Amino acid sequence: MNPTTTIPKPTAAELDLLQTLWPLDAATAKQVHAAMQVERPDVTYATVLRLMQIMHGKGILIRDASERAHVYAPAQAQDSLQTNLLKDLIQKAFAGSAKALVLAALRSGLSKKERAEIERLLKDEQP
């Protein structure tokens, strides 16, 4: 894919599949289906395969067709995609204010462990 070409934003179902595929790095539809069934036993192989084919067509996945079973991999690293989605969310939902996003997240309820981790990160950033 051309570096100047933007990858479309994945749908919720596509993000769900990416969450399964990222730890695997690259996998066949059969492998992704097996991994997804751990959390969602109702998901069918046909659904996973079709979704992966659609994602490949959109440029969200890359495909190695050199073997009989095609191997798919994310076209974009997890942190890169999440950063792009977050930037878009900040612009659209929080008028460009990262502070407003953080405050909304803090108000949505954090566990004590999450709050302690955030406080530790903020302390580490202090000069």
Rank of each mutant, 00 (worst) to 15 (best):
I90F: 05
P8I: 09
K9Q: 09
K113R: 13
E39Q: 14
K113Q: 15
T5L: 14
L24W: 07
P8N: 09
A100C: 02
K99W: 00
G96K: 01
A46V: 11
K92V: 12
A104S: 13
P3V: 14
I60E: 02
A69Y: 07
K99R: 04
A29C: 05
P41G: 14
S80D: 10
Q126Y: 06
K9I: 04
L121Y: 07
I60R: 00
D64W: 07
P23V: 06
L86V: 02
S111R: 08
V38F: 13
L103R: 11
M1V: 15
Q76M: 11
I7C: 04
K123R: 11
L49I: 01
R40C: 10
R40F: 13
K113L: 13
F94I: 01
L103E: 14
G109R: 06
I90Y: 08
E125I: 00
Q53E: 15
H70A: 14
M55R: 10
H70D: 04
K112D: 15
N84I: 04
K87I: 09
V71Y: 07
K87E: 02
K99Q: 05
F94M: 00
P127M: 05
R115G: 04
R50S: 08
I90R: 05
A116R: 15
T4A: 15
A46R: 15
I54Y: 09
K92I: 05
L85W: 01
L17N: 08
L51Y: 02
T83R: 13
L86G: 08
V43D: 11
L103C: 04
A77W: 03
R120S: 11
A35R: 14
D25T: 12
A35I: 08
A69I: 00
D25Y: 08
E119A: 09
P3L: 10
K99C: 00
D79G: 07
V48G: 00
L18T: 00
A69Q: 14
P23H: 02
P10S: 12
T20E: 12
A98Q: 03
R40N: 15
V38Y: 10
Q37I: 05
R40S: 11
V102Q: 05
A116F: 05
T11V: 05
R107F: 02
M52H: 07
P23T: 06
A65V: 09
A26K: 14
G96H: 01
T20Q: 10
A46E: 13
P41A: 09
N84K: 10
H33D: 10
N84C: 02
L49E: 09
G57H: 06
T11H: 10
D64Q: 09
V43Q: 07
A12L: 12
A105P: 00
S111G: 15
L122S: 06
A46H: 13
Q78I: 02
A105V: 06
Q91F: 03
Q126P: 02
P127V: 11
T44I: 04
L85F: 02
R115M: 12
T28R: 01
V48A: 02
G59P: 07
A46Y: 12
R120G: 04
